[in-house]
């Protein structure tokens, strides 16, 4: 057992798992956004959506590299191996990010809910006791702040805009809201990471997230649905049916032509 494992009680597999959770969120959301490429509602937004995707895939690359560097030589993997050669049940992203783009309202509500979460989470992770993660968090945070400004503007603009845009936004909130509790799940690993000073307290992240999102929804004339089914399972590799198709597309070349350099 390494010196750090003795002081923190964490094993390389725990660090890897946490970096995968963060990296897979960024990868799958970035992959979803890249589906918009060339199909946005107008040219400036086409550029913006591509830019969001670009940032997220870049973040995923850093986080998956970090995940892959944990453990001994037999366990280590490249970011590409992790992205392209795992099956769906080994992915650790939350179900929210794998939900289909739907219309622009669904894409932007999904984006806003994640951006607020990521901004709060990464503003804590810059103080993580796991230094390589804290270093990545600093870079991520700068990008996420722009993302949230962008999606927050759209939340307001479309929530208030026309009857149609309001209805579409409300529908998106209704459809996506019950994917958000999963963001704050406080499982055994999360608790051990928190105790070791690697990850923040999820209950306080949730409180801050609600304090940000609920007034913003209200200001945009939107409201969260009152009750319904609650999604869970991503952290255990139990995903929605969508992830299999995302991976089938994303991993096609690596699967069809194994071992090639590209």
């Amino acid at each position: 057992m390494s010196a750090s494992a003795i002081t923190t009680g964490l094993l390389p597999a725990d660090y890897r798992e946490y970096a995968l959770r963060l990296g897979d969120n960024a990868l799958i959301l970035g992959q979803r956004l890249s589906e918009w490429c060339g199909h946005g509602p107008f040219l400036e937004e086409d550029i913006a959506l591509t830019n969001l995707s670009l940032d997220l895939i870049g973040q995923a690359q850093l986080l998956l590299e970090l995940a892959g560097s944990q453990g001994d030589d037999t366990e280590q993997k490249t970011a590409d191996e992790l992205a392209y050669l795992r099956d769906a049940d080994a992915f650790r992203n939350v179900l929210l990010v794998e939900q289909p783009n739907g219309d622009f309202a669904h894409t932007m509500v999904r984006q806003y809910l994640m951006d607020v979460y990521d901004e709060i989470l990464y503003s804590e992770l810059i103080r993580s006791g796991w230094q390589p993660l804290a270093d990545i968090a600093r870079k991520v945070l700068k990008e996420i702040r722009y993302h949230k400004q962008h999606s927050g503007d759209w939340l307001w603009r479309l929530g208030q805009g026309t009857d149609e845009s309001h209805q579409r936004m409300q529908q998106a909130v209704d459809d996506l809201w019950f994917y958000t509790p999963e963001l704050f799940e406080n499982d055994d690993l999360q608790q051990r990471l928190q105790a070791a000073g690697v990850a923040p307290d999820m209950a306080s992240i949730q409180t801050r997230w609600q304090a940000g999102v609920l007034p913003a929804l209200k200001q945009a004339g939107l409201r969260p649905p009152e009750s319904g089914w609650v999604a869970t399972g991503g952290r255990k590799g139990h995903h929605s049916e969508h992830l299999g198709y995302i991976l089938a597309e994303m991993q096609f070349l690596q699967r069809a032509y194994p071992g090639c350099e590209w």
Binding site: L54, I57, A60, D80, Y84, E249, M250, L253
Partner: peptide, 14 residues
């Protein structure tokens, strides 16, 4: 773009 073979190629193409 959704089928780019590596993360680096996906970033470059985007």
């Amino acid at each position: 773009v959704t089928r780019a073979p590596t993360l680096k190629r996906k970033l470059i193409l985007l």
